[in-house]
Simulated assay, not measured.
Amino acid sequence: MNDSSGRWQRRSYHHGNLKEVLLEAARKLIEEHGAFGFSLAEAARLAGVSPAAPYRHFRDRDALLAEVARTGFERFAARLDVAWNNGIPTPLSAFEALGRAYLAFAREEPASYAVMFESGAAAEHGGEAVHAAASSPAAEKAFNVLQRAAAALCRQLPENERPPLKLVAMHIWTMSHGIASLFIQEGSAARKIPLSPEEVLESGMLIYLKGLGVLPEGDGQESSKETP
């Protein structure tokens, strides 16, 4: 740990935001060691506080991780909501912005993103609190943005031909998460193809939307710029 980081930690703690300092320390440790590769004492050490200090806010490491996940979902949901912008100027162009925002969050907040979707690993490590964070109201807000996007995209279809919107939103989330995990979180896969994660996601979504009937079969990427 260099002197500048130490000064930052002591100054932050002095101003009374112990909880945020611990969350930042946890995010740094997650990037280095993975979600379950450190202890609460190590987070305290990196934050520059006593080993007992974290217990003012967190009963154990899993509670700290759960808060990293919960606050991550809050920022994630807010970012998706801004990108969707109520489908303005068109649902398709807003949908593209939504996809870019999803990948940008995974790229810019890798530690938070990793913990947010670590529910399977959390169960293996006994991290019930982390698993619960993935089902929290903050996580539901993020999913609701995708459901609103799905509803707007499918609105042009005859009512009796519209697919279940929750299922469409889940498909969108699954594809987005898969690309984020493979090409951003893992990193190595991105070097094997001459396309950016954003290009892979956009092309995949265009194929999916054509399959739903939202886009005519003959349309290319330029169709996403038109009003549906």
Rank of each mutant, 00 (worst) to 15 (best):
67 E>G: 03
117 F>P: 00
90 T>I: 11
119 S>A: 15
100 R>D: 14
118 E>A: 12
105 F>L: 02
114 A>P: 05
136 S>A: 13
103 L>A: 12
104 A>H: 15
130 V>K: 00
88 I>T: 15
68 V>P: 00
107 R>V: 02
137 P>F: 13
137 P>C: 13
126 G>I: 10
126 G>R: 10
79 R>C: 08
147 Q>M: 14
96 E>W: 14
105 F>D: 01
126 G>Q: 12
106 A>P: 04
114 A>H: 10
67 E>N: 06
97 A>E: 14
130 V>S: 00
68 V>C: 04
124 E>H: 09
67 E>H: 06
136 S>V: 07
120 G>M: 09
118 E>P: 00
136 S>Y: 04
69 A>R: 09
99 G>C: 12
136 S>G: 07
145 V>G: 04
73 F>I: 03
74 E>M: 10
122 A>C: 07
126 G>H: 11
93 S>Y: 01
125 H>Q: 15
107 R>C: 05
114 A>M: 11
81 D>P: 04
143 F>H: 14
100 R>E: 15
72 G>S: 11
142 A>N: 08
117 F>Y: 14
78 A>S: 14
120 G>S: 10
111 A>F: 03
75 R>C: 01
70 R>I: 10
145 V>C: 08
133 A>K: 00
71 T>C: 08
103 L>G: 11
82 V>H: 10
67 E>R: 11
84 W>H: 04
130 V>I: 07
112 S>W: 00
81 D>W: 02
